[in-house]
Design a protein around this nucleic acid. Sequence first.
DNA 1: ATTGGCACTCAGCGAGTGTGAGTGCCAACA
DNA 2: TGTTGGCACTCACACTCGCTGAGTGCCAAT
Lengths: 345, 345
Amino acid sequence: MVSERGLQVLRAIVQDYVETHEPVGSRSIVERHAFGVSAATIRNDMAQLEDEDLITAPHTSSGRVPTDKGYRVFVNHLAQLRPLSGAQRAAIESFLVAPADLDDLMARTVRVLTQLTGQVALAQYPSFARAKITHLELVALAPNRVLVILVTDAGGISQRVAPLPIDIDEEDIAVLRARLSAVISGRPVADASERVGDLGPVEPAGARTQPALDVIAGVISEELGEFRQDRLVMAGAATLARREQDFRGSIHPLLEAIEEQVTLLRLMSEMVTDEHGLAASIGTENAPFGLGEASIVASNYAAPGGTARVGVMGPTRMDYPTNLAAARAVARYLSRLLEDDDSGR
Amino acid sequence: MVSERGLQVLRAIVQDYVETHEPVGSRSIVERHAFGVSAATIRNDMAQLEDEDLITAPHTSSGRVPTDKGYRVFVNHLAQLRPLSGAQRAAIESFLVAPADLDDLMARTVRVLTQLTGQVALAQYPSFARAKITHLELVALAPNRVLVILVTDAGGISQRVAPLPIDIDEEDIAVLRARLSAVISGRPVADASERVGDLGPVEPAGARTQPALDVIAGVISEELGEFRQDRLVMAGAATLARREQDFRGSIHPLLEAIEEQVTLLRLMSEMVTDEHGLAASIGTENAPFGLGEASIVASNYAAPGGTARVGVMGPTRMDYPTNLAAARAVARYLSRLLEDDDSGR
DNA sequence: ATTGGCACTCAGCGAGTGTGAGTGCCAACA
DNA sequence: TGTTGGCACTCACACTCGCTGAGTGCCAAT
């Protein structure tokens, strides 16, 4: 078992190691922290921590480094979020004020978060899966081409061109619009695609436009599919270049993941949050995703369509208290913004 | 002056250096290339090349490395494009077939190009600056919110929500739509914004909706601004991780540029193409942009709105013949695709 | 349980050395 | 005049070796 003081020693080791990037020795601990005991005592505690696999020595007779398990204990039991400075809060506010639209808001969010933490910032888009379709609009671009626009109550807008097999006129469009609109308006995104697929044969009067209807229904399905798909925005990839050595020499897996998106999306989705809506996935916990050298911390935020997450990715040896606090602060601000003002987006 | 054989020696040096990543000596040249002269003769030629600042020796008594000027001469006078293999042509074809829309097409373009070259791929979007507005659509989302949609003949579609200071009904919208549409339909994007700005006071009948009109006109201006702004897509940032040492140890400037976009956009725009529509910007030529260690090669492609460029960015020590050929092949395919089929996008 | 003392370990550093690839120069040659 | 073999010279790189110091583990004393 690890004593109470042992845990404090672990905390000291994590803090010092994150700060100095060098293995931490018993001597430097008693110098930097007021434990009131001698180095030898600390050494005994460290031996216990090593038995519990919470710290490890890179080589005999060097200082200790936290293991992934050690970071986990630190995050779960020892870390207290470092509150943001006033300047930082002001930065968030000024960055996120008056976004032009949802895309703009998300882009600014990750930018401010990467600026606050110096890490790669990630943000899930609010999910539109539970949002409802409020509008369907068809715009004739040419006799045989129609622009199909969908709008959700959560602010999601999607548009796509449908090339038609036949020519139709404004009157036909009005009919089709009415018919389709009746079927999907007010429906949640998740339901709507079934409805669209189920479109029965039309009454004789509309038989001529049936092929066009089929194509448009197909396009709508695709658009709905995009709504259901979660999306991710990122910023700060360049910060990784400064941390090459933190990742056993190669930041390739990280850059891959950033480019792929889908991996990070899954990872973000699968993280489990604590009671405060905060989550951390540390080092080898990410190994299944090829990111065994990285950690991700995230915070839930509330959006009209449900909760989504915003966070940062960085080396296992990251500053968890700061990053968690930054993610939480940004998430809170984001929640407020999306809730207060569901107007423009 | 550099002799004819001297130039061939330069070519050999560039080729070997790109392949081996090691300074090349006179001895290895006579071994790998059939010059039919002795190493001593090559050495004399190399001395001349060094006088002309086309090659340089990292340290006394090591092999030679091309200077940026040497690469420039190589690209301008010595390089012949390496034709793509059948498999590579097939890859381009299968990658780019049946894109869903312009975004999809551009995304696939950069993906195939990064796959062919192993470098970071860049592609400018076709410019919409000279495209003409074909449609303006207003969709009522709520009494005080209107979705403003613009469509150009080059396939560009833009949409944005305008929050209105007053409530309006469908009839008002029809009036506004007609009025705005009359002003900008058929106009080139570049002209249209002036027109919108010039909207005189309305006849008494429409005075009530004037505030709404002003807001919508403002939103349209913003959308037009976005059309005029060139855009860029990229892929393959992860490939940089493998090349860390090619960039004097830090790929940070590259990642920065990739994230900024605007720098690369300017760089791409300012490159001068040769008579075949190919361009290369080498090493220190990019120094003003903070990319003095990188080279960019690009090829023009023809799009409805004018020509744009597609290319790759990599270390100065890149395989120019292959990369130029790949950029050209993709550009040609892209031109054909955009010209044949200006339908869906 | 804590502490000072002590022997031990080992990464990192700097100095010294050897090796070999490669050069520049020169005299001889076609 | 251009080409060639020979030769002395240079210097990055790799390797060894010994030293140093931070840090450990263990133990006997408190």
